[in-house]
C-alpha cells in the first residue's frame, strides 16, 4: 500500500482512538469510584456536542466571529454543561442507589441516556436530522503525495493528547487525584481519612462527563457533523474500550480506546471491499481478547484485600 494513504489511515485511527479513549476514561472513572456502569455517558457526550453547537450559533447571533474565541467558549460551555449534568446524574441517580444492586443503576442510566438523546431529537430545532458542525479551526493543509496533513486535525490531536496528559497529572500528582484513587480503592477507609466521599464522587462524575463533552466537540470538528444518535455507538465503543483495558484502570481505558480504533482501521485496510464491516471486525476481535483475558489487558498486580 502507498505510504501516503497508509499515513492517512493512521491519522484517522489516531483521531478515533483519541475520542474513544476520552469516553472510555469516563466509564473507568465512574466505575472506579462507584463500581457502577453509567450507560448515559454516550448520550451525555451528545448533549455536550449539541450544547457546543448551540453556543456557536448563539455566538454568531451576538456577533462573536473570531474563531479562537468561538472555539474556547464553545468548549467551555459544552464542558461546563456536561460536567454539571454528570454531577446531577451522580447526585440524583447514582448515589441514592448505592446500596441497591449495580444492575439497577445500569438500567436507570440506560433509560436516562434514552431520555437525553430523544429529548435532543424532539426539542432541538430539526433535531432528528444531522446538524452541520462549523469548522472553527484553521483548515490549511500540507500535501505529501497521497497524505494530506490538515492543521485542524493536528490541533485536535494535540489538544486531545494534552487533555489525556492533564488527566494523568490530575489523578497522580494532585491531592484531588489522591482522594479519587483512595475512594476508588476503598471508599469506607477513604471516608475515615476525612475525605468528603459525596463531593469526590460528584467531582469525579463532573470530570468524566466533561471529558465526554470534549470528545463530542472533537467529533463535531473532525466530521463537521453531529446527530442525536452519535453517542450510542461512541458509548458502546468507549465502554468496550474501558472493559478491554481493565475496568477501573485509566491507562487501560486509554490503551483500549486506541486499540479499538486500530482494529477498525485494520479492518478497513484488510478488507477495503467491505469497510462497512470494520465494526464487526473490531468488536469480534474484542470478544476474542475478552475470552483470552476476561479481566482486561491490564491485570491488577496486587489483590485488593489480603
Amino acid at each position: 500500500m502507498d505510504v501516503g494513504l497508509f499515513s492517512q489511515y493512521v491519522m484517522n485511527g489516531l483521531m478515533l482512538g483519541m475520542m474513544y479513549a476520552l469516553v472510555a476514561v469516563g466509564f473507568t472513572l465512574f466505575f472506579g469510584v462507584m463500581d457502577i456502569i453509567n450507560f448515559s455517558h454516550g448520550d451525555v457526550l451528545t448533549v455536550g456536542a449539541f450544547a457546543g453547537l448551540a453556543t456557536y450559533l448563539g455566538l454568531v447571533e451576538i456577533g462573536v466571529s473570531w474563531p479562537p474565541a468561538q472555539v474556547a467558549i464553545v468548549l467551555a460551555v459544552a464542558i461546563v454543561c456536561t460536567a454539571g449534568l454528570g454531577a446531577i446524574v451522580a447526585k440524583y441517580l447514582v448515589l441514592p442507589l448505592k446500596d441497591a444492586p449495580a444492575l439497577n443503576t445500569l438500567l436507570l442510566t440506560l433509560m436516562l441516556g434514552t431520555v437525553l438523546h430523544e429529548a435532543i431529537r424532539l426539542f432541538y430545532p430539526l433535531g432528528a436530522n444531522p446538524q452541520r458542525f462549523p469548522s472553527l479551526l484553521p483548515t490549511d493543509a500540507y500535501t505529501f503525495g497521497n497524505f494530506t496533513l490538515r492543521i485542524d486535525n493536528m490541533m485536535l490531536l494535540l489538544a486531545g493528547t494534552a487533555v489525556i496528559v492533564g488527566i494523568h497529572l490530575l489523578i497522580n500528582k494532585t491531592k484531588l487525584g489522591l482522594a479519587i484513587r483512595a475512594v476508588a480503592q476503598d471508599s469506607e477507609t477513604a471516608k475515615t481519612m476525612g475525605i468528603n466521599f459525596t463531593l469526590i464522587v460528584l467531582i469525579t462524575f463532573a470530570i468524566g462527563s466533561g471529558l465526554a463533552a470534549f470528545a463530542g466537540i472533537l467529533h463535531g470538528l473532525y466530521y463537521s457533523e453531529i446527530n442525536f444518535a452519535m453517542g450510542l455507538l461512541l458509548g458502546v465503543i468507549g465502554f468496550s474500550s474501558a472493559i478491554v483495558g481493565g475496568l477501573g484502570n485509566i491507562y487501560g481505558a486509554i490503551i483500549g480506546g486506541f486499540l479499538f480504533a486500530a482494529l477498525q482501521t485494520i479492518g478497513v485496510l484488510a478488507m477495503p471491499f467491505a469497510s462497512a464491516y470494520k465494526d464487526v471486525f473490531a468488536f469480534g476481535v474484542i470478544i476474542l481478547i475478552m475470552a483470552w483475558r476476561p479481566t482486561g489487558l491490564i491485570r491488577e498486580k496486587i489483590s485488593e484485600r489480603v
Partner: peptide, 27 residues
Amino acid sequence: PTHKVIAAGIACIPEGRQVFPKLTVEE
C-alpha cells in the same frame, strides 16, 4: 457525616489495617 467526625479531631486505625494497597506508603 464521617469526614466531619474526622474534622472534630478523631482518627481511626481500622480493623485489618486497611492500608490502600495500590498506593505507596507515603501516599
